[in-house]
Amino acid sequence: MAVPAQLEFFLDPSRCIGCQACLQACTECDTHKGQSMIQLDYLDRAYSTQTAPVVCLHCETPTCAEVCPADAIKRTEDGVVQTARKPRCIACNNCVLACPFGVPKMNTRMNLMMKCDMCYDRTSSGLKPWCASVCPSQALAFGTREEMMRLRPNARPVNAFQFGLQIIRTKVNVMAPRDWPDEVVDVTAAMYEPTIGHDMLDDIFVNIGDEV
């Protein structure tokens, strides 16, 4: 089975309200039972409520897999970068340190890297990943591109990211403003950006009709 080609993952971290539903739901996944693979961080706990949910973006050329000395990380034909193969992973930590999005986790006691595999048991059956199925603000969404374009008239998906001189393309999309003129999100340019303060009125509630 493969993830149906028309179904895609759409990530919009700036919609995250930090409710942790994704963390809890992620632990239900059959491929990593009882352990959440989603990374949810407070960006600046003292001054901002901004939270960042990060799932694996499933790179077209995964740095984690390339730097793996044991050849333990495989990408399926449908583009999902799977968690480390248990017989092969030697827990070297290379993938954890090299992933440009900071996604993999290292379970040293088990000698095993673990990461989000887009709930392959569910998505390969056409179901939504756990996190996307419970996210109340739909910062994590899974569906067709047409559906997203209709539901979010001010946004469009982008799947290319710049890290210094390196451009990484991914299977997972992030949502950018629809009139944003570029195609590549420059991550390193935003590396030292201060977080967003939510003490100001957030107009997503004011313009609720524009973007659901």
Partner: peptide
């Protein structure tokens, strides 16, 4: 470090929406 990579990625996306979704940069 990995957490700062996640923060940088999230900020890169947030910055795209600056001035559109409200909130203000600290």
């Amino acid at each position: 470090c990995p957490p700062c990579r996640r923060a940088s990625f999230a900020m890169a996306q947030s910055v795209l929406w600056r001035g559109r979704r409200g909130g203000a940069a600290l």
